[in-house]
Design a protein around this nucleic acid. Structure first.
Lengths: 261, 261
DNA sequence: ACGTCGATCTCGAAC
DNA sequence: GTTCGAGGTCGACGT
């Protein structure tokens, strides 16, 4: 019913005493722990929560983050971000308490097991590289490299000019008529909020310079109602596809990106 | 090295063929799957990502949600929200492919294992109840039930009056001098953004009514700089603690909450 | 179905 | 250290 090796410890129906020792050891060695069993969970900190008895999966990762998963739901029912400290203890010999605490903000998570179905301690070897593509940042890079993606003759002035209270704008440029152009970029279908955000940038800029300022919303598409609002505010929309951005980024991009294409 | 029962299947170093069969069976029975092994992951959908070879933990939950965890990090490196569909297959007998697809939005996650360290299939029995306390909504409820939490003599007018472009305000009231009061509530330390949000609400309201309008920011505390901004804008701050809100909500609250208190 | 907003958001970057 | 905005945000609630 159980097996061990240097790489993995897997125990089915282990005693709580064994679990205490193995969990403490695994934490010290920064292994990844997976514990399935019957438990309650109490959280106290930024908010407070209580979860009554039931079977869940506890995962403690090498950086001290904690996840408690129920049988359903993408998100953990309870958790603790990385770098928390642990105290493992047996209560009256028949309950195993896992206490994960964190300062700043001060919060604690307490998991109490009365039965453990399976315990895994894993030494994951993982030097893999994670690469994400078509982010908003990449769209911006593409537009900065080739502003004509947004409008013919557009000239880049600077990236992310500070705009006071309104935050930043994404790209700041000049059109063929010498008018300033604020380009707000969205990776996905732009909502009315995006139009309002663009409006704040343009309004802020107009207060600071004594020349015409245009606004362009650059995104793959617009959500319903956004086109109307954009027109009302007097700004333009330019459809920019992720694929086109790829094309622009391709030549100067590293091998990892190109073998994805 | 392995064990099974009606409740749990736990295999250490299983063959990929066994894994294919067990995973397919577990998915059909809506069990919770935990698979640790060497894999690559590719995502394609709202964005795109690629993760090269390394050891990770894959979890597939009863509702069809998918999580891939590396040794560190609170968040899964890749995932799929609930209700996705699966296709498990052996490629050339030496790689196990787990394909999780989702429509709306159309996206897919493909995990390819060349070695599996451990496989768990769990039937979690969990009828436990989860209760969370001190949410922003509960703070609002508390303040609506007892507006004096914010200011003596404050009278509630209506909840969440629509405020046009600015969005909503949290509580709309009247003070002892008959002035309108907009109360912006934050569960945690309020930032300058909260003050600006309050300002938008008040400004919007002032355009619509021909009478004095005050603004009050109600939160456990203020972040640095917020006090100054609030004063400059001419609004008040009222410290409202989660504990006080608890007290107000206590009497009319259900048994579950009360046994937590 | 879509849009909006809160979250124990988490995470990273900028200041 | 704090602040701020992005997220494959997710999830809930309203229309």
């Amino acid at each position: 019913m159980s097996g061990t090796s240097s790489e993995v410890i897997s125990l089915v129906s282990p005693s709580l005493t064994d679990c205490r020792d193995l969990i403490s050891d695994a934490l010290a060695k920064q292994k990844v722990l997976v514990v399935a069993g019957n438990c309650t969970v109490n959280y106290e900190g930024r908010a407070a929560s209580k979860l009554t008895w039931g079977e869940r999966v506890l995962m403690i990762k090498a950086d001290g983050s904690v996840l408690i998963h129920r049988r359903s739901g993408y998100e953990p029912v309870n958790w603790q971000p990385p770098k928390c400290q642990f105290r493992i203890s047996l209560e009256e010999g028949k309950r195993l308490s896992v206490l994960a605490t964190r300062q700043k903000p001060k919060e604690s998570l307490r998991i109490l097991f009365d039965d453990i179905t399976v315990l895994l301690a894993l030494s994951l070897t993982d030097e893999g590289e994670f690469a994400m593509h078509v982010t908003e940042e990449q769209m911006k890079q593409a537009i900065m490299r080739d502003p004509s993606l947004v409008e013919h003759g557009l000239k880049l002035i600077s990236e992310e000019r500070r705009m006071g209270d309104s935050g930043f704008t994404d790209v700041y440029a000049e059109d063929t008529h010498g008018r300033l152009v604020v380009v707000e970029i969205k990776r996905t279908a732009a909502s009315r909020n995006a139009a309002l955000q663009l409006n704040r940038y343009v309004e802020t800029l107009r207060k600071r310079v004594n020349r015409p300022v245009r606004g362009i919303l650059a995104a793959p598409e617009l959500r319903s109602g956004t086109s109307t609002l954009l027109a009302k505010l007097g700004y333009d929309f330019k459809a920019v596809s992720p694929a086109r951005c790829f094309e622009v980024l391709k030549p100067r991009t590293d091998a990892r990106l190109s073998d994805f294409l």
